[in-house]
Write a protein that binds this DNA or RNA. Sequence first.
DNA 1: CTTGTTCTTTACGTTAACGTCAATGGTATA
DNA 2: TATACCATTGACGTTAACGTAAAGAACAAG
Lengths: 121, 121
Amino acid sequence: MYSISDLAEEFGITTRTIRYYEELGLLKPARSEGGRRIYSSRDLARLKLVIRGKRFGFSLEEIKEMVLLFDEDRTGEKQLERTIEYGQEKLAAVNERICELVEIREEIERLLMDFKGRLSK
Amino acid sequence: MYSISDLAEEFGITTRTIRYYEELGLLKPARSEGGRRIYSSRDLARLKLVIRGKRFGFSLEEIKEMVLLFDEDRTGEKQLERTIEYGQEKLAAVNERICELVEIREEIERLLMDFKGRLSK
DNA sequence: CTTGTTCTTTACGTTAACGTCAATGGTATA
DNA sequence: TATACCATTGACGTTAACGTAAAGAACAAG
């Protein structure tokens, strides 16, 4: 169990940010008797997901959508199918991103080769 | 040669956005006699880079830094070394991103397997 | 040459994602 | 129990990245 400043330190963000994420419905930590936030390792994992999503340029609203979909109890068959469909979409998107990044990597490598060649002349 | 609305349509953004990028120094299109912006295919390529950068969660300031560094005439040896160093940093960052995305892909695949398993029961 | 569309600059408005107080209350430690 | 620190909820402030509207000029078509 962690306090809000534990998480803030762990992830290098401010407590304000964490409270803001809660305000948007991205986190729902338990509370102590006195009203203080208590974070489980499950909450910690979720925050990790949120921060990772941010690094990939997703808005907090988009991240919320994803996090909630993969987190709800999916009981009905319809719900399950819907989630699988969504997951497959996301999988395709991730694959596309990977391809794009590989392209970028190749471009940078080409540029570096070029510059290094000029240097050794 | 393209007009501003050509580019806007091509990339699915507004003309305001394109002018804003110019305002920040990310684009420097030629002008017609009457003062209208004229974009070359080089400008088009650069805009493509900017938009790609955005999709990966970089701020316009960060993108500017990258775009300018890889675009300036690098004459001095010091400048060249500096650029190579910067390029290597960026290369490492891109590699890290790729690794992270591969991890995400694996996670999604696991989740999908799990859900599909539940469905076929 | 007129008319309609596209472009220009200028300038104020908006929204997401926080930052920064301030006033107050909980909690650990000597 | 006093003290020092950490947390809570407002509430207003800030910045990046545009949106939007106005007033006027450029350009293409008839």
